[in-house]
Design a protein around this nucleic acid. Structure first.
Lengths: 212, 212
DNA sequence: TTTCAAAAGGGGCTTTTCCCCCTTTTTACA
DNA sequence: TGTAAAAAGGGGGAAAAGCCCCTTTTGAAA
């Protein structure tokens, strides 16, 4: 009996191609393919649709890999999630692992490594490349510094700050006094160690608060 | 006899998976896989390595799809290039087509469409989805507006403007007087229709002048 | 119910940014 | 080789951004 695998990936061509690859592996077969996390959760309502392993992309519309993995960890902890991504960004990897992924593969890997990762995840419960392992170790001590706590209202302000609007205009749109908005700015600058609005824009984009 | 296809794609997993897909098509077989344009050109020095069709990714390190396609058009015009990308950005698509690609596929497509595209490109010389065709038509009349001419020195300034530096500091680093730098800013604002520095930063990132 | 800490709003000031209009120096090219 | 335009530099002023320090409101926890 082969282990069942579900692919969650928004690029259809890649998911179909991957599907062929996995079906070629000795111990695995594809159960079905989903285009996003929401679709996956809907499918899971039928117990027959629950696989052994989920191959999960991170960047997806509707419901991304991190949210989806977290949801699976809650409701279907027996399902092993293997993250698959082009993201090499430390924060993203850590978030994904913290959300409950059993392994993290870059799309830039050999198919033999994919097969190996699937076997490991299924049989030992986890798989990590050397690089991810060392990242994990490194992230143990400096404990905090991850996503510095930004309130919802601040996030909203930052998005406005990433436009050509003046603070006065932003205040209008947020139904706040200009002085309050300037207060947001000042406290964010201090929290994030920024010097001016340009720095804030770059920060917002780096941290995906705003996407150009 | 099957038509030969070469894949140029930096993500190994995707290229191997695609390879399996194409080898499953009736009329096509994979000759080999390259990780970037430079590798492809090196391979082409041996005439036995010249395929009928190249499946070309756009975003690659070392030598990207646009440069590579342009080079192929010069030296091996008989080779048909089918672009494969996640980029839906109009400018990128147009650049690729102008560089000589015979077709443009989003990675977000069905494998049957890939097969169809390969057949069309090989047998009729080109393949375009409705959306790309209409994009082409649309881009005929408004002729200009593409990459608005920015001088090297202006590009350099824009990169500096995407940091927390003041214009005075930027002037220092560029060995120019602050007033000259402000002159750059003013003329760029006018050319690009921007209101302030925030707008410039967003523009620079959108147009890949600066990468956060 | 008190208390204490955020959130919201604000005054006043300096610096930076933005805008308009002007001169000198270089560079291209007809 | 003259000329015409870029490129470089600049003055001055209004607006926006940034900075400090202060008050009121509000909304929990104790």
């Amino acid at each position: 009996m082969k282990y069942s695998v579900v692919i969650v990936e928004d690029h259809i061509l890649l998911s179909q191609a991957l599907s062929g690859l996995v079906n070629g592996f000795e111990k695995f077969k594809i159960l079905y393919i989903c285009k996003n996390g929401k679709e996956l959760l809907t499918r899971f309502k039928d117990p027959k649709n629950i696989p052994d392993v989920v191959l999960m992309d991170i960047n997806m519309p509707i419901m991304n890999g991190i949210e989806t993995t977290a949801a699976l960890k809650e409701e279907y902890p027996q399902v092993k999630v293997l993250a698959l991504s082009v993201e090499e960004d430390e924060k993203t990897i850590l978030k994904m692992l913290r959300a409950g992924a059993k392994g993290y593969l870059l799309k830039d890997t050999e198919k033999s490594i994919l097969e190996n990762a699937l076997v490991e995840v299924q049989e030992t419960g986890f798989y990590h490349t050397k690089s991810v392992t060392s990242l994990l170790l490194g992230s143990l001590n400096p404990k905090k510094e991850d996503t510095i706590a930004l309130k919802d209202r601040e996030i909203e302000f930052i998005k406005h700050a990433c436009t050509e609007k003046t603070y006065k205009e932003i205040a209008g749109e947020m139904c706040l006094s200009p002085k309050t908005v300037e207060g947001y700015r000042d406290s964010i600058f201090e929290k994030l160690n920024l010097k001016n609005r340009t720095g804030l824009v770059i920060y917002a984009i780096k941290n995906k608060i705003f996407t150009p």
